[in-house]
């Protein structure tokens, strides 16, 4: 029971991170019908910007943790937003009216480029970061001394994710930008006829997805304490799995899918073998694609009017 509870906490934390990345996949897919395979790299860049900003803050002597976190988050979101915007401009917009395969290949090319670019700039070695948010609550203790803990960091990750997802849903549901995004998803020509700047709306979708991935990058940096230029690939595939599992194109689906993947990974590592935890995720991807390609909350293609 106690062990189970601990895995639940760990799984929720991981799920929050995957969910944040998955939103970017699902939103971009929703609006341009394409998987942005460079999205995992955006997350990786977010993590690197986090490490760099922490180091800079350390050298200038800012050590108050809440302020550090805030500055790091803002910096990471800002920079990755610029990356997201640029990627759309360079790799996707020129191919907007090409056959579907073209932007897909361009996306993979962009992803490889970004990995190598970061490797060149930052080196191939793993970047460590000393723990920034130590400590936590002990929730309960088993007779044999096993303590169920939720660290302050886990709590921060979960709460921040919930807040971001809430805010984000509000933007999509209630603001003019959100409505324009949903309109572009359904009928770009009509959206344009009503005065929506479709290109700008697509750009902003990339920017928003990138900013959320950056938050995930910051949190993963804090959580694991090490990053390298290659983390974007695995996290990207897992978040992509989460988006597909939830129903690609569906915002609540991405959050739910992220949660699922996080929990599965945590429980698999705890009860089976940690070596095969990635295999578990990929098996799910394959199973979903075979048996329910529209995912948990996705709408089947036939509903298209």
């Amino acid at each position: 029971m106690e062990y189970f509870l601990q895995q639940l906490i760990n799984g929720l934390t991981l799920g929050a991170i995957y969910g944040l990345i998955a939103i970017g996949y699902t939103m971009v897919y929703g609006i341009i019908g394409m998987i942005n395979f460079a999205h995992g790299e955006i997350y990786m860049i977010g993590a690197f910007i986090a490490v760099i900003t922490f180091l800079v803050l350390g050298t200038v002597g800012i050590t108050w943790v809440p302020l550090m976190l805030l500055v790091v988050l803002i910096m990471a979101m800002l920079f990755t937003a610029v990356y997201g915007w640029t990627i759309e401009r360079i790799a996707y917009r020129p191919l907007r009216n090409s056959p579907r395969l073209a932007p897909l290949i361009s996306a993979i090319g962009m992803s490889i480029f970004l990995q190598n670019y970061v490797q060149l700039l930052q080196g191939a070695r793993v970047k460590p970061l000393p723990p920034v948010v130590p400590g936590g609550f002990s929730l309960m203790e088993r007779a044999d001394g096993f303590v169920v803990q939720i660290s302050y960091l886990q709590l921060t990750i979960i709460l921040l994710t919930v807040a971001l997802m809430y805010g984000f849903t509000q933007i999509i549901q209630r603001t003019e930008l959100g409505r324009a995004q949903r309109a572009c998803e359904q009928d770009k020509t009509m959206a344009g006829l009503l005065g929506v700047n479709v290109d700008r709306t697509i750009s902003l979708t990339f920017v928003m997805g990138a900013a959320l991935a950056a938050v995930a990058g910051v949190m993963v940096t804090l959580y694991y304490g090490v990053i390298d230029f290659y983390i974007g690939f695995l996290a990207g595939v897992k978040a992509f799995t989460a988006a597909v599992l939830g129903g690609i194109g569906s915002l609540p689906g991405a959050m739910l899918g992220g949660l699922f993947i996080g929990l599965i990974e945590a429980f698999w590592s705890a009860y089976f073998t940690i070596e095969y935890k990635d295999v578990a995720t990929f098996s799910i991807l394959v199973l979903v694609l075979i048996f329910r390609p529209s995912g948990l909350l996705g709408r089947p293609e036939i509903e298209k009017v």
């Binding site: 409505r179 949903r182 309109a183 359904q186 009928d187 006829l193 009503l194 005065g195 929506v196």
Partner: peptide, 26 residues
């Protein structure tokens, strides 16, 4: 200039109110 185009092209997954809100963008 506003157009009610061929085939109506209302946004099917939006409510009536949201469709009208879209109409007021310009």
């Amino acid at each position: 200039i506003a157009q009610s185009p061929e085939g109506r092209r209302i946004f099917p997954r939006m409510t009536v109110l949201e469709n009208l809100q879209m109409g007021s963008i310009s």
